[in-house]
Design a protein around this nucleic acid. Structure first.
Length: 551
RNA sequence: AGCGAGGUAGGGUAGCCUGGAGUGCCCGCCGGGCUCAUAACCCGGAGAUCGGUGGUCCAAAUCCACCCCUCGCUACCA
């Protein structure tokens, strides 16, 4: 059986992930993995915390704590949050594991042996006070172009000129604020992407039609057109995996070298034997979800690393990149207090399904989108609650109130059944094209079908007439069986998106496990002992005003 | 600056690749219906010079050129 690995871009845990991070990577990956499980496929869903990198090291210096302990605590918190959001990972690990180090070293050695690792001479800013080399963003000074005081080492935020740290006038270190900066010569290691370009391009040509996002295809094409260059993989800092090469032991891998390898390392951490069945099999299909800021790493660098290693790792098949979610028309920004993070969200509304549902409806699949208070309230109160929840409730209560005349064995209205089948097909075809938002739209459309049939057929009139009219009783059963089937199908199809709520409805049908596609064809039977209770609640004014206070 | 993505009723989206009457969906608004259901649901209506200008074509939201606006990337943020 073909195996599938679904991955989500590894969240960088320096800050609590916000709703924009979630909507473009972990959430769609989780939904898609749930869908494949429902189809009965052999799928693993791999994600984990991206632990290394300068921002965490700098934060540890600023907070005067141990870097590894800080990263570990941030990782635990992130993991817990994703679990609270009901993300059904096969395994959520992190990039700082022994397993990841082992594979990182293995791939590095192979790349080195195959001649894809080069030495490059550099002159880098060094803070004498903190005793560390400074990444471009941690050195600030006066912009040589416009004179702006707080220009960073890579770019001036005022005039957006691209800069080099050496160009800054009177530079200072943003960690300690002192001006004790010197430039030191050093030798770094770099990955020779230029040499790998033909092979990476061949990989791209072969796979880019496999449902890649338009943005991902074009962005990768841009890099090829410009010509690939060297890309640094070692840095003169302490936090990370040290370089296993003579003369470079004092340096660590640049975070984005071991982060994508983390997909493999985390799988190995999950299962020390089975990971090979997935990552070393030509039959494995790898589908990667990420925000648009991550495209280059997944379309160029990671495949390049795997190809160059020559170790036979399976290459990604599909790259699904998302645009960005904005918050009330503005960019999410932790430092400027714009937008809500995942923890804050749960403090307002506890049930993650409410967020999952609303976020998918606003998912930036084709262009940047906005997450707004009105959009959230509409999605939860009007659509999820008013359409889907209410349909189940009205069907269940109407049958429940007329148990005696309801024949559960009556054949459902065939016309309704065929319309239902068509919608199920539409749903799967959207999912197979990775258009998750549209797949959810189909679920909503299905509940619309149920609600309008209810109004059109007026089965409550049949129920009343059934007391003295056998024909009406028969007709009531035919229609209500069809409507029951609609509610049942809706509750199965919503499972990938809002699993908790789906399971809550399925209990009424006596199903106490995750649904599978095969369930759709079986006849739903309503448990007569259960009193129908609304599946969803509307957002309260208190919740809405709490939400508003974030805007 | 270069490259990529986007701009469609009041808001949000689909349609664009492969041209065929502004075609669809969700919300809001206006009117009606229904009383099974959670003040819910259903039906109907109004509302758009499809970012702008020019071009190709019998025909352009769709193809081409230029321009404007938003976002991303540009290799040490990840």
């Amino acid at each position: 059986m073909e195996k599938t690995i679904v991955t989500s871009a590894l969240p960088y845990i320096n800050a609590t992930p916000h709703l924009g991070n979630f909507v473009g990577s972990v959430l769609p990956a989780d939904i898609y993995a749930n869908y494949l499980r429902m189809k009965g496929e052999d799928v693993i869903f791999i994600c984990g915390s991206d632990m290394h990198g300068t921002p965490i090291e700098v934060r540890a210096i600023k907070e005067k704590v141990n870097t590894e302990e800080l990263a570990e605590s941030l990782h635990k918190k992130a993991k817990e949050l994703f679990q609270k959001f009901n993300c059904n990972f096969t395994y959520y690990g992190d990039t700082n594991s022994d397993q990841n180090m082992e594979i990182t070293y293995q791939i590095f050695d192979a790349l080195d042996k195959n001649g894809y690792i080069k030495e490059v001479q550099k002159e880098l800013p060094y803070c004498n006070s903190d005793g560390i080399f400074l990444a471009d963003r941690f050195i600030e000074g006066k912009c040589p172009v416009c004179g702006y005081e707080a220009a960073r080492g890579d770019q001036c935020d005022k005039c957006s000129s691209l800069l080099e740290p050496k160009m800054l006038i009177e530079p200072h270190c943003t960690i300690c604020g002192k001006k004790e900066i010197v430039f030191k010569k050093t030798t770094n290691l770099a990955l020779d992407l230029k040499k790998l370009q033909p092979q990476i391009e061949a990989f791209f040509e072969k796979n880019a039609k496999a449902n890649w996002s338009k943005n991902a295809v074009n962005e990768a094409q841009k890099y090829f057109n410009e010509g690939l260059k060297y890309r640094d993989i070692s840095r003169n800092t302490k936090w990370g995996f040290s370089i296993p090469k003579k003369g470079f032991e004092d340096q660590v891998f640049y975070v984005w070298f071991d982060a994508p390898i983390g997909y493999i390392g985390i799988t190995k951490e999950w299962d020390d034997l089975k990971w090979k069945e997935y990552w070393l099999s030509p039959d494995t299909r790898i589908i990667q979800f990420m925000g648009k800021d991550n495209i280059v790493f997944h379309t160029i660098i990671f495949p390049g690393m795997l190809i160059g290693s020559g170790l036979g790792y399976t290459l990604p098949k599909t790259i699904k990149s998302y645009e960005f979610l904005n918050w009330e028309g503005k960019k999410f920004s932790k430092s400027r207090h714009i937008g809500m993070d995942m923890e804050e969200a749960l403090n307002i509304v506890q049930d993650p399904d409410y967020w999952r549902f609303a976020l998918v409806l606003s998912a930036p699949e084709n262009s940047d989108t906005d997450f707004t208070e009105t959009g959230f309230v509409e999605a939860v109160n009007k659509i999820m609650n008013g359409k889907i929840g209410n349909l189940c409730q009205r069907v269940f209560t109407l049958i429940n109130a007329n148990k005696r005349m309801f024949d559960a064995k009556a054949t459902p209205d065939p016309e309704i059944s065929s319309r239902l089948d068509a919608l199920v097909n539409e749903y799967t075809s959207y999912f197979d094209k990775l258009e998750l938002r549209e797949a959810l739209r189909v679920v909503i459309e299905m509940s619309d079908l149920g609600n309008s049939l209810m109004s059109e057929k007026e089965p409550w009139l049949l129920a009343k007439a059934a007391n003295y009219d056998n024909k009406a009783a028969a007709e009531f059963s035919v229609i209500m069986n069809a409507l029951l089937k609609v509610a049942y199908t809706v509750s199965i199809l919503m499972y990938p998106f809002i699993p908790n709520s789906s399971l809550r409805i399925l209990k009424y049908f006596g199903i106490n496990r995750a649904p599978v596609f095969a369930d759709i064809s079986s006849r739903p039977e309503l448990d007569p002992t259960l009193e129908p209770k609304p599946i969803f609640e509307k957002l309260t004014d208190a919740q809405i005003s709490k939400f508003r206070n974030f805007s």
